[in-house]
Design a protein around this nucleic acid. Sequence first.
DNA 1: ATAGTATTAAGAATCGATTTTGTAAATACA
DNA 2: TGTATTTACAAAATCGATTCTTAATACTAT
Lengths: 230, 230
Amino acid sequence: MCLKDGVSFMAKRNGSSTLSENVTKKLQSDILAGQYEPGSPLTVSELAKGFVVSVAVVREALTRLATQGLVLQNPNHGFSVKSVSEEELNSIIEARLLNESEALRLSITHGDLTWESNVIAVHHKLSQTAEYEEVNQKLIVREEWSDIHRQFHYELIAACPNPILLGFCGRLWNLSEFYRHWSFQHQPNRDGRAEHKALTDAVLSRDSEHAVEIFRAHIQLTVDNLFDQR
Amino acid sequence: MCLKDGVSFMAKRNGSSTLSENVTKKLQSDILAGQYEPGSPLTVSELAKGFVVSVAVVREALTRLATQGLVLQNPNHGFSVKSVSEEELNSIIEARLLNESEALRLSITHGDLTWESNVIAVHHKLSQTAEYEEVNQKLIVREEWSDIHRQFHYELIAACPNPILLGFCGRLWNLSEFYRHWSFQHQPNRDGRAEHKALTDAVLSRDSEHAVEIFRAHIQLTVDNLFDQR
DNA sequence: ATAGTATTAAGAATCGATTTTGTAAATACA
DNA sequence: TGTATTTACAAAATCGATTCTTAATACTAT
């Protein structure tokens, strides 16, 4: 089982935020970072001990994550990390292509100069950040890159004026992120950089359909990559 | 303010379900039924008293509804019913058209004979149920019809094999339902029955594109209807 | 008067304890 | 020996009390 990393995290209230919020965020990022095995139980009392927090707080955090789909709630049987299946991954990708393509279209239509600049800025940052690092003879994705990668994709659609669509995109990104960790170890075998560059260029030239086309290919390749290595 | 309706509801555990689940359901249906004014505060302790239940249970229910978007959570300021705006309604409809159209396409592609039969059955039920009733000189939508109407639309997409899309559709339906109650009193001024019939026919003849077209028109009319009467 | 500082009270958030539920081991029974 | 029925225990769910926040009011010093 995958336990908390010792003393690293100590929940506390900073600013006007609540303990529940902090624990939710920390728990979510731990799950997305692959700290907990898919399907493994998330025992409320254990987590509460780990976070030095009452059970109510953990319960609230888990309830939130369960509603978002990262955690499974089974009445009278508590919570567990969501499990993975090829079938579900396909569903996630399908939903993502649908919603994120549309958000991208709308973003390109509505984006102003500030947005353009932000896209350029975050793409530059992404292009200058190393994706992998070697940890005992294995290449793993760097957390910093992972963050910037998310920011990049988020910025592309940030000018979409529909908050509902953006909410869906965010949720789907999280689910995809989870799969990135648990789908049959993927190898660094393609040039994501070129794709990100092409995507940025298409977006900046306001060519919606071309941008969507590249985006779809980008996502599809990511999926293929996840499955190919079994 | 809109208080609980007296003794009508008493939360209890039946079967293997939990108190939290029951309260969540009851609270959600109350909100969708227009029991609580948009934007009005949902005081945890008050609700707990009303449901004869501890604050923890209510808090969990509200947290769930907040994650779904029916309730707003403001750290250290508790919960309130979501507010409404024409802008947001448009966003909801846009998201709904996108996702429900696709779900409908997929459902038509994948549906089997049992599904066809279910569509016919629920359409028949819908067609035989009265939509409005008069309550002191005002026509209001009957709750029974409202239920069947939801079942009807749900059944149309039920054969869609993508649970993520179906989840989105469900959430969007709830948001739409909320607006149905709070958008500038709508009048019974169009023939929904004919549209439902046409939609059913298109679906049963497996004509995806035609079905989607009718569906889009159906939704669009509903929206226009909500806005026209101001 | 006015800006800044205590006072207070309502409600939110959190806590630790209690009750309920589900499971598995132990015992009784056919 | 195999099937029911207790018992015991761990974890989930729920509870009621305590602590913390916020915002409104009263108070003080310029």
